[in-house]
Nucleic acid binder design. Sequence first.
DNA 1: GTAATTCCTCAAGTCGACTTGAGGTCAAGG
DNA 2: CCTTGACCTCAAGTCGACTTGAGGAATTAC
Lengths: 144, 144
Amino acid sequence: MDISEVAKISGVPASTLRYYEEINLIRSVGRHGLRRVFNSDVLERLALIALGRAAGLTLDEIGSMFTEDGKPAIDRQLLANKADELDQSIRKLTTMRDGLRHAATCSAPSHMECPKFRRLMGFASLKAGNAKTKTKKPPSNKKN
Amino acid sequence: MDISEVAKISGVPASTLRYYEEINLIRSVGRHGLRRVFNSDVLERLALIALGRAAGLTLDEIGSMFTEDGKPAIDRQLLANKADELDQSIRKLTTMRDGLRHAATCSAPSHMECPKFRRLMGFASLKAGNAKTKTKKPPSNKKN
DNA sequence: GTAATTCCTCAAGTCGACTTGAGGTCAAGG
DNA sequence: CCTTGACCTCAAGTCGACTTGAGGAATTAC
């Protein structure tokens, strides 16, 4: 398969595929002229990468989940840790969501006078760890 | 109050306070020599900012929640939207967490042979929106 | 009075995951 | 055979929210 086919099927832009290859996350099996040729098993690998990303792993962490010969060698401990992290995030986000929900409908004259809101404010300042929750903007993904 | 006091009380580094002032998120009330002087109400504002950050708002969005004269003018619609976004994220993270949890303990010889894992993989590739969930590393926060 | 703090400004750097662009190459279709 | 379009490389740019560092000034401590 050539790169555009992999891109089309996987939904991963060609530029990203080149980048992934550069950092050794995926491999092409050779070249046809100067064009990369991919084996179809790259698709499964990409799915695995997508899963890792969705779970909040860095590309480095994902990279460490493959053995030298390309087979997945998933670290169960890492997975469990990530699950715990997600759990933390979920709790926090849930608190925030409820707080926002309340603030959006609260009838106090000013939010500053609403006790729930103030409590939430205190909570946020305290554990100033941040949980980013970006909903991805489609990165101008014109499929070549 | 001078900047180091605000930093100490709020937990926000001085460099960040300067940055926030630069982008008009907070205001100092004057100078003592060349040093900024802050009014104590900046603390409430910082708490509000922390809350916004924790809820996933950008600094721009947070900035738009204050009126020209510095009073909070919270946009209930924005809050409700953010709450919905959080809800989306929570759902997704929950799926991921459960998936990871399972993967971490699954007894299938290879993850690739576990139907649940494969289903999760498909799920992740499909909706390739990403939910970042970084647990903040303390940014070398030596409180001057 | 002077040294030591603490603060200042401004430009540039950081991080992760990519994207963009200029300039070049090559294989397939007409 | 030659054009065209898909692909290539490599360097640099992007985004958000800050941090870092150099070089300087004013305040506080002694």
